[in-house]
Write a protein that binds this DNA or RNA. Structure first.
Lengths: 113, 113
DNA sequence: GCAAGTACTTGGCCATACATAGTACTTTCA
DNA sequence: TGAAAGTACTATGTATGGCCAAGTACTTGC
């Protein structure tokens, strides 16, 4: 039980939320997402992102189209489905409630520390 | 991939943070923590809390003493160790950075939606 | 004694983040 | 032309941890 491991655990599920948000903003492919996540200091690696995108696609939350690239193999450009948009709304509620609950607990603590 | 499951995933790791906070506030036993977590709408069940406390204890982040109860079996009253207090500081940083990163991503999204 | 309530324990299941290695396509350049 | 490098995506295996469900142990009250 170390700090690094807990950071990983904290990220679980939240990543899915962030990625759906990024996709909701317009069509993007994996490297775009990695750039955005990295610039927000939400560390992610390929081995995490690609399986997640596959899961989202298999659940019908996102869809993609192949687009040829001028510098390399074709890319999968993702966008949200209607189902994905609904799911994102639900996730937003979940996240906000989770943050709120955590603040309620930790703020109470700070008064006594 | 449903909402419930994602809620579970989002809780991962965060629970540990919340529980350390609650313990940092004074000596408590498991049912106290469950009450507090429930009142903050952070849903937890016994099967989650007890193993977590055991992990925290085995890692030397918390310690406990047995205290007899007037209504039932004796209780384990937990408190933070010095190591646990340090760990909690690290977790606080991690959590705040995670919230910040998530806000950075989701706020950008809200401008286009 | 025996049932009911409280507190804690244990074993197994499942989802997911990550490491690592591998596939496939394109461009570059000798 | 064909080998090397770069880009994009895929597949497999491991570890962690939340949860379910069943179980143990102690106390109280009938």
């Amino acid at each position: 039980m170390n700090l690094e491991n807990t950071q990983v655990q904290m990220r679980k599920g939240i990543l899915e939320y962030c990625i759906l948000h990024i996709i909701s903003r317009g069509e993007v492919y994996a490297s775009d997402m990695l750039d955005e996540l990295t610039s927000a200091r939400m560390i992610v690696v390929e081995g995490t992102l690609y399986p997640l995108l596959t899961r989202l696609k298999n659940s019908g939350l996102v869809e993609y189209k192949w687009v040829e690239s001028k510098s390399g193999p074709p890319r999968k450009y993702y966008k949200l489905t209607n189902l994905g948009a609904d799911f994102l709304k639900g996730l937003t509620d979940t996240w906000e409630e989770l943050v709120h609950s955590t603040e309620q607990i930790t703020h109470k603590s700070q008064t006594t520390v």
